[in-house]
Amino acid sequence: MKQLRSIYNYTALFLFLCVAFSCKNAGTVEDIDGNIYHTTRIGNQTWMVENLKVTRFNNGDSVKYLKSNNDWKQEKQAGYSFYNNDIALVKDYGFLYNYNCLQDIRGIAPKGWRIPTEDDLRELESFIKSNSAGIFLKEKGNSHWLTSNVIGNNATRFTALPGGYRDEEGSFYMLKSNGYYWTKTGSFEFYHWSSRMFQAFADVRRDSIFKKYGFSVKCIKQE
């Protein structure tokens, strides 16, 4: 009887650990720096909830931190920065990456994840099936977004944030009012006053100057 109880206890412990471990993997993803990101399932896609803040490629090489305007302007390689070089903003808004980061084969997205494409955005929009997709994708409330009459409700848990952008000269703009995210070939945007998701700001195929811009990154899981 005592032996049976012991077997039962060990089985329960084993199952508990299995569930706990698989649960951790289901709801989060870890980058090479050890940053943990929550994930959300939207239709058939899995997106990162927090903005990316990794400082190394997947092979361990460092992504260059470009602090000064001159460094940012001159750099022809992959690089990142953060808004106004204010480290306190990184926790919430993550980093602003230049275009070369997305194209670098060493990869900044965690293993098994990638930078979204325009097709991914089409699929996201078609799942939401609304002209007001921004409402469902923006973080709920005004803790980061400026006041407006179209406050996000984050029904998808996508948690779009107004991280602003860095331009080709190295200047930072529009924190708290506009959020810009990279796709493989351009940006998609959210505005504090709008219920929609836009794709009008940066298209590197039409104007290569945008390769020198810095935007936030939200990765999508390879399915």
Partner: peptide, 14 residues
């Protein structure tokens, strides 16, 4: 809790 966190987000968005 685990089942809940990994399930597909089904919401009547409108």
């Amino acid at each position: 809790g685990c089942n809940n966190s990994s399930q597909e987000n089904i919401v009547d968005f409108e």
